[in-house]
């Protein structure tokens, strides 16, 4: 009897579908009122989250369209932000450039150092130091961005004079590093500050990845006489590559959307400068924060339009990072 039903289950018999639906109904347990209410509540919250995401995109797009339709300049390429004049002229070219440049500087500085610190914590640090250092890095990830901003503006900026003079003297001929002796409230300073801010998150995720390298891989390399660096290069880094990439993109997402640290440090204008050392430029988030107070309702719509662009960019970056992480489910960086 048992055997025969099993056999009929394996073949597709006409009797199988009803049993599975019955099982499904029993498993769901949605027959009691309490269960139905609770399932409704929890599913409702999930749907609410999706609705919020959709609403963010929808409302931003609606207000942005109000602003862009009245824009007399090209929204994507104009080098000015005059929302008060008639007809209004504004464009995001400078903001897009500044956002990309400051984030790229931050990534170039932060990723190698963060990977090195992650390696330090998993493979190099004395065992006693590992957990206190990890703890400190966790806490640093929790320092509010406005405090980083205040520190950057009042402590870091005065420290940059020496470095800028030196860069100007030896690398000024490239144009990228020329400096007119202005206050060092420039893209490079912003990039350095952003690098400091995103260091903890990249370190945390990379550390989790490096920790999951199979012990066997490392021991095999050691048994072949590899030095510690060769172990890291041959077994740890290849294993952790995708994790490091997604950690970097999470950090990039933070750097792109950072507001207060940029708003406090940068002295903005609406032009693209070749030099990273001279003040000027701006980022999406910084522009919103500093223009908001004086903006009319139309000006706010224009700022919302620039925010929509930022939203789309971070959505793409984060989506890509998550897609890479999803391929290796074990180390989801979402908690970091």
């Amino acid at each position: 009897m048992d055997i025969s039903t099993q056999k009929t289950d394996q073949a597709p018999p006409p009797t199988a579908p009803p049993t599975t639906t019955e099982q499904k109904r029993a498993a769901r347990g949605a027959t009691r009122p309490g269960d139905r209410i609770f399932l409704g509540l929890s599913r409702g919250s999930g749907i609410l989250l999706l609705a919020i995401m959709a609403a963010i995109a929808g409302f931003l797009a609606y207000r942005a369209s109000l602003a862009i339709s009245k824009d007399d300049a090209n929204f994507l390429t104009a080098f000015e932000w005059n929302t008060g004049v008639i007809p209004p002229k504004f464009g995001i070219a400078v903001l897009a450039f500044g956002t990309v440049v400051s984030s790229v500087i931050a990534m170039v500085l932060a990723v190698p150092i963060a990977v090195a610190i992650a390696l330090f914590l998993t493979h190099y640090a004395p065992r006693r130091l590992r957990s206190p250092i990890s703890y400190v890095i966790d806490l640093l990830a929790a320092v509010p961005s406005i405090v980083y901003g205040l520190w950057g503006a009042l402590i870091l900026v005065p420290q940059m004079d020496g470095l800028f003079g030196w860069l100007d003297e030896y690398l000024g001929w490239t144009g990228i590093f020329s400096w007119d002796q202005g206050a060092p409230r420039s893209m490079l300073t912003v990039g350095i500050l952003l690098a400091i801010m995103i260091l903890p998150i990249i370190t945390n995720v990379s550390r989790e990845v490096f920790r999951q390298v199979p012990q066997m891989h490392e021991e095999a390399a050691l048994a072949l006489g590899a030095t510690r660096w060769e172990v890291v290069r041959m077994s740890v880094l290849p294993f952790g590559r995708s994790g490091v990439i997604s950690a970097s993109m999470l950090g990039l997402g933070r750097a792109l959307g950072e507001t207060m640290a940029v708003a406090t440090v940068l002295s903005p204008d609406f032009d693209i400068h070749a030099s990273l050392l001279n003040p000027g430029g701006g980022t999406f988030a910084q522009n919103i924060a500093s223009k908001f107070n004086e903006a009319s309702e139309f000006g706010r719509d224009a700022l919302i339009a620039s925010g929509l662009v930022l939203f789309v960019i971070t959505l793409l970056v984060n989506g890509a990072a998550r897609a890479i992480i999803a391929r290796r489910k074990e180390y989801s960086g979402a908690n970091a």
Partner: peptide
């Protein structure tokens, strides 16, 4: 994706 939304957005 929502964890990555900039606070200003």
């Amino acid at each position: 994706v929502m964890t990555g939304i900039p606070s200003i957005v």
